[in-house]
Amino acid sequence: MSSSASTSAQEPTRRDFIYIMTGAVGAVGAGLYAWPLIDQMNPAADTKALSTIEVDMAGVEEGQQIIVKWQGKPVFIRHRTKKEIDEARAVDAASLRDPQTDDQRLVPDMNGNLQPQYLVMIGICTHLGCVPIGDGAGDYDGWFCPCHGSQYDSSGRIRKGPAPKNLPLPPYKYLSNTLIKIG
């Protein structure tokens, strides 16, 4: 070591070069080895093979909500009442924690029209993942999360409590007036 210490102030030696190369190859090798060990924990191919489901919403009465399971997660499909829609629209979106208008919470049907009566959302609280209670629960005629008290309005937007974001929307599209495909 003393020889390399005395030379290091001057030109890098061949030995320095070999040290660095060995270290670099070792580091890359360790990384290549570690990645499979880490990545195996990510969702497997069959889990990921995006399962899609079709749901006919015609059977959902006004003022009712059904919960369907998609990718292991609950999806809320609520047939909103006129009052709920009006309340959701009356809110000034800019004043919200996660600003979104009611229209932005909907997906146009095949004719490009919105169907505001049908609200489709992933029923997972954006705080820590509980399933909020629906049927107009909470102070905003929407959803109330029993875990830590987050409240969502009739458009599924966060209004009160610790959750940072609105209830997320799953990817879905209309196949007919009432039939949707999620995923």
Binding site: P43, A44, T47, L128
Partner: peptide, 23 residues
Amino acid sequence: TNLFSAIPFVGDAITSWLWGGFA
């Protein structure tokens, strides 16, 4: 496990890695 989703940017990737799925 959702506590980790609070981490900015990589939170969701970490939770799905912990779960090995979407829930």
